[in-house]
């Protein structure tokens, strides 16, 4: 009985320490990306720091230069505030206007220079090709908190 009690107490301590450590570590992990609003609200905080921003690609803002392999577009969360993004890389297959994306890079003045462009897929699966995804739905899937 005594050894068991010791064992339970020991296990509880290890578990508590592990939990505390992972909560600390999780702080970084839990916010995989910031939103344009957060970045625009406090520019000083993000200056010269590599960050990820998750938002929607603004309709009609995509410019793709296939010769120079340069992609530029605006991202927005609410359709009101935009961040222009510049990405020197190949356009992903699933990259579309109105699509959710996560870009990784740095703010250079008002512009975001991305070195990675990820497509954020929505949780909707459909077979209708002309089905246009509602902006509200994307807004919901991006705005996790």
């Amino acid at each position: 009985m005594k050894t068991r009690t010791k064992f339970v107490i020991g296990g509880a301590i290890i578990f508590a320490v592990l939990t505390a450590l992972s909560v600390q570590g999780l702080q970084e992990m839990t916010v995989f990306f910031y939103t344009p609003q957060e970045v625009l609200a406090s520019p000083g905080k993000f200056e010269n720091k590599t960050i990820r921003i998750g938002a929607l690609v603004q309709k009609g803002s995509v410019e793709w230069n296939a010769q120079a392999i340069q992609l530029s577009f605006n991202i927005t969360e609410d359709g009101k505030k935009f961040i222009p993004v510049y990405y020197a890389g190949v356009k992903p297959d699933l990259f579309r206007e109105g699509q959710g994306v996560v870009v990784e890079g740095k703010m250079q003045g008002p512009r975001f220079e991305a070195h990675q462009l990820l497509v954020k897929h929505s949780e909707e699966y459909t077979v209708e090709t002309e089905n246009k995804k509602n902006k509200e739905d994307y807004y919901k899937s991006i705005q996790a908190q």
Binding site: F32, L118, H121, E123, E124, Y125, S141, A144, Q145
Partner: peptide, 25 residues
């Protein structure tokens, strides 16, 4: 649901206004 992730939320166990509604054809 708790955090911001690249991974999309659950399709199969999606709940809308208290009702299960999987978002898949």
């Amino acid at each position: 649901e708790w955090w911001r992730t690249l991974h999309q939320p659950s399709t199969l166990f999606k709940v809308e206004s208290g009702q299960a509604s999987p978002s898949i054809s």
